[in-house]
Write a protein that binds this DNA or RNA. Structure first.
Length: 575
RNA sequence: GCCAAUGUAGCUCAGUCGGUAGAGCAAUUCACUCGUAAUGAAUAGGUCAGCGGUUCGAAUCCGCUCAUUGGCUCCA
């Protein structure tokens, strides 16, 4: 039996799904059915709405077809015959797809059982080679992905070589569900989103807020150490500011309606940049004070369509860890390199080391001098190379105002998240008429770079929750240590230790409820407490605790003095 | 925004044919004072998402609205 790549198997499975749909719904119209990163889909136009139960029906029909070991038959046709055939079958979407195939290119079909599909292949030889299939979900999808086109029904499924591989995949999905930050956010009492308040507006509960405070403090300290200055700017600004910046014109749809104050329209900010620029414009600037690196944890609000909101990962109000670097052309290279180095070091602190860069270059429509675009691009490329980052280039994928590098980080489950962004801006300096006096005594336009390392604190927190599965490392854990007295007579000892550890700056609590020790341990473990200290007669006697570490398991009795040192060093080491 | 599904106690979920609300966990109170993942008992907890309709009677049937979920589109 020939060995086929999983993509070929899945693409073939997509055909079989279409064949099953054709068998069950003879009037179905077909669009396309490619393989994806972990499965396949096919888009259909059906007279009836599919319901989840239909998936079983379709899957069973597919299994029947797989068992028949039907061959995939390759058929070449000329354009006229192909058109004729698709017209006869009333396959309007396929006809449009046919028209996409450039003149002179071969037009190929694959036939499997009764199902004939316009397709360039390749496929397996026969359906017995597809292994196991599973249909996963039904969704809507615009034809050709365009909002103005009709919506088709899409069925997602997956295929694997064997049952074992499929089960591994399904287990992964289960694991991801267990880590879902929305679920953990509720269970660990970290945050919530209230219908009363509104969708996409997160409420940080005490424990979540505590974690945020810790990483915000870390963020501020690191920025000071890396020669940034911090700014605070308002949440609203007059309409003329947003007219100058161009936001009202370009992104007005995503901005919230203005409020009238003294006859002026004020808008809630969707970005911090115009404010930072106004700080720059507050006086004449000399080349001697450049580069300026101004950072702010700036809370912004953007109208996101209702259908896209998703826990903390896609919200309407969020805090960016924003910064703007304003510098001379000579400083660009070292500044970009420095931003990248700084970014990588921050990610390392949070336990992310698998990072990939995505470089986006000049699109068709753009502003700014080509020479500046070029210089910016060179600096980005150099920095990526210098830090040895794997890099993918998206030609023409930059914003109209400048090229950029995005960093994607891989989490504990191997999922990639786009987080850091470093973007040049040739638009705003022009629009605001930013300048500095150069060595020559003349005015020059500075380079301006936007950068966000974590992106949005909300989104970062959501990903952090999933990455750690709620088990935050000691330095981030809202409750680092929990002391469990076994009986009432051990409470005083526990409370004294709690007091002492708090004096050392550790976040400690004692569980003095009249529960059994087993029950208290269960609760502490479910709360993902890094250190559980049990105190009974023996420990009281020897001034020690029975220590259970989330990371190392049961450690046994440790003298209180030794324990204090261990805890403090763990916090410093960020483990 | 679009397509679809879902919405019952804080959480997870049951609720038959339309006959007036139920479990487990969590919470609260009391008893127990316990040695490494669940001590026992009692109590409390509900505008069945909201509004409207059909009906003698609606969690249940119908319509609208809202929210959530999975996708699509979008993400300066």
């Amino acid at each position: 039996m020939a060995k086929y790549s999983i993509d070929v198997i899945r693409h073939s499975a997509a055909h079989i799904m279409a064949a099953a749909v054709q068998e069950l719904y003879p009037n179905a119209k077909f669009d396309i059915g490619p393989s994806t990163a972990d499965g396949f889909y096919y888009d259909f136009d059906l007279e009836q709405r599919l319901v989840p139960d239909d998936l079983n029906k379709i899957e069973n029909t597919m299994k029947k077809l797989l068992n028949q070991k039907l061959p995939f038959e390759y058929i070449e046709m000329n354009r006229e015959d192909a058109e004729q055939l698709l017209k006869e079958q009333n396959q309007t979407y396929k006809l449009e797809r046919l028209a996409d195939i450039p003149e002179g290119e071969k037009i190929t079909f694959y036939k499997c059982g009764q199902f004939l599909d316009l397709c360039r292949g390749p496929h397996v030889e026969h359906t017995g080679q597809i292994g196991v299939v599973k249909l996963l979900s039904i969704a809507g999808s615009y034809f050709r992905g365009k909002e103005s086109n009709p919506m088709l029904q899409r069925i997602y499924g997956t295929a694997f070589n064997n049952k074992k591989e499929l089960n591994t995949y399904l287990k992964q999905i289960e694991e991801a569900k267990k880590r879902d930050h929305r679920k953990l956010g509720r269970e660990l009492d970290l945050f919530s989103i209230s219908e009363q308040v509104g969708g996409g507006l997160a409420l940080w509960h005490p424990k979540g807020a505590l974690i945020r405070n810790i990483f915000e403090t870390f963020w501020r300290e690191e920025h000071y150490k890396n020669n940034y200055d911090l700014l605070y700017t308002p949440h609203i600004g007059r309409s003329n500011l947003w007219e100058t910046s161009g936001h009202l014109n370009f992104y007005g749809d995503a901005m919230y309606a203005p409020m009238k104050i003294d006859g002026n329209d004020y808008y809630v900010k969707p970005m911090n940049c115009p404010f930072h620029i106004e700080v720059y414009q507050s006086r004449l600037r000399s080349y001697k004070e450049l580069p300026l690196r101004w950072a702010e944890l700036g809370t912004v609000y953007r109208y996101e369509k209702s259908g896209v909101l998703h826990g903390l990962l896609r919200v309407r109000g969020f805090t960016q860890d924003d910064a703007h670097i304003i510098c001379t052309p000579e400083q660009i290279e070292s500044e970009i390199s420095e931003v990248l180095r700084f970014s990588l070091s921050i990610w390392k602190s949070f336990g992310f080391t698998d990072i990939k860069a995505y470089l986006a270059t000049k699109p068709e429509k753009s502003v700014g001098e080509p020479e500046r675009w070029n210089q910016a691009l060179i600096s980005l490329e150099k920095a990526v190379k210098e830090h040895g980052l794997e890099c993918e280039v998206d030609e023409g994928g930059g914003a109209f105002y400048g090229p950029k590098i995005d960093l994607k980080i891989k989490d504990a489950l191997g999922r990639e998240w786009q987080m850091t962004t470093i973007q040049f801006d040739f638009n705003l300096p022009e629009r605001f008429g930013m300048s500095y006096i150069g060595e020559d005594g003349k005015k020059h336009q500075p380079f301006m770079v936007h950068r966000a390392l974590l992106g949005s604190l909300e989104r970062f927190f959501g990903i952090l929750i999933e990455h750690y599965s709620g088990a935050f490392p000691l330095w981030l854990a809202p409750e680092q240590v929990r002391i469990l007295p076994i009986a009432e007579r051990h409470q005083e000892y526990a409370l004294n230790a709690k007091k002492e550890l708090r004096q050392l700056g550790l976040r400690v609590d004692a569980d003095c409820r009249s529960e059994t020790i087993g029950s208290k341990i269960k609760d502490a473990r479910n709360s993902r407490i890094p250190y559980i200290l049990v105190a009974g007669d023996r420990e009281l006697e020897s001034a020690s605790f029975s220590v259970r570490s989330r990371r190392e398991g049961q450690i046994g009795e440790v003298a209180f003095e030794t324990l204090k040192e261990k805890l403090l060093s763990d916090v410093t080491e960020k483990i």
